[in-house]
Computed example of a mutant assay.
Amino acid sequence: MTLEEKQQEIIDDFAIYDDWMEKYEYIIELGKDLPLIDSSKKTEDRLIEGCQSRVWLDASIENDRVRLTADSDAIITKGIIGLLVRVYDNESPEDIVKSNLHFISEIGLQEHLSPTRANGLASMVKKIKLLALSAIAK
């Protein structure tokens, strides 16, 4: 599935919910489905700066693809990083760097987050893109 197809799948998934309380519940469920990050990877150097909650992100390269795992100590934030992992996991570093995450605005996520959570979301995207960029540079 392409990065674009993954985004469209998320847009379609969110379209079935009528109000934002249902969408928040869905985001929480996505966080519960996030593959667990190995506890040894929950280190300070894997924390994403700019997030109000603690969010750990681990990235590796396998077969020229970026593999991501993540976790957070806040349930909504865990769901948000889960959405990003869903889109970006197993993509090429080049596709990640040049991607435009339009699903965020199309599902209305940004406008329904508090300013601190919106900043955290931007920090998560930035961190993933920087990790992909560093993989290209190697």
Score class of each variant (00 low, 15 high):
Thr2Leu: 07
Glu4Met: 05
Glu5Lys: 10
Ile10Lys: 01
Asp12His: 12
Asp12Leu: 11
Ala15Gln: 12
Tyr17Pro: 01
Tyr17Met: 08
Met21Tyr: 12
Glu25Asp: 13
Ile28Met: 09
Glu29Asn: 08
Glu29Tyr: 07
Leu30Pro: 00
Asp33Tyr: 07
Asp33Glu: 15
Leu34Thr: 04
Ile37Val: 12
Asp38Arg: 08
Ser39Phe: 09
Ser39Asn: 10
Ser39Asp: 15
Lys42Trp: 02
Lys42Phe: 00
Thr43Glu: 12
Asp45Arg: 10
Arg46Tyr: 12
Ile48Cys: 09
Glu49Val: 12
Gln52Val: 13
Ser53Asn: 03
Ser53Val: 01
Val55Ala: 04
Trp56Asn: 01
Leu57Ala: 03
Leu57Phe: 03
Leu57Cys: 06
Leu57Lys: 02
Asp58Gln: 06
Asp58Val: 06
Ala59His: 08
Ala59Pro: 00
Ser60Val: 02
Ile61Ala: 05
Leu68Glu: 01
Ser72Lys: 04
Asp73Tyr: 04
Asp73Cys: 07
Ala74Trp: 08
Gly82Gln: 11
Leu84Glu: 06
Tyr88Gln: 04
Pro93Gly: 12
Ile96Glu: 07
Val97Ser: 06
Val97Ala: 10
Lys98Ser: 15
Ser99Gly: 06
Phe103Ala: 02
Glu106Lys: 12
Gln110Lys: 11
Gln110Arg: 13
Leu113Gln: 09
Ser123Gln: 03
Lys129Ala: 08
Leu133Gln: 15
Leu133Gly: 14
Ser134Met: 14
Ala135Phe: 15
Ile136Asp: 08
Ile136Val: 14
Ala137His: 14
Ala137Val: 15
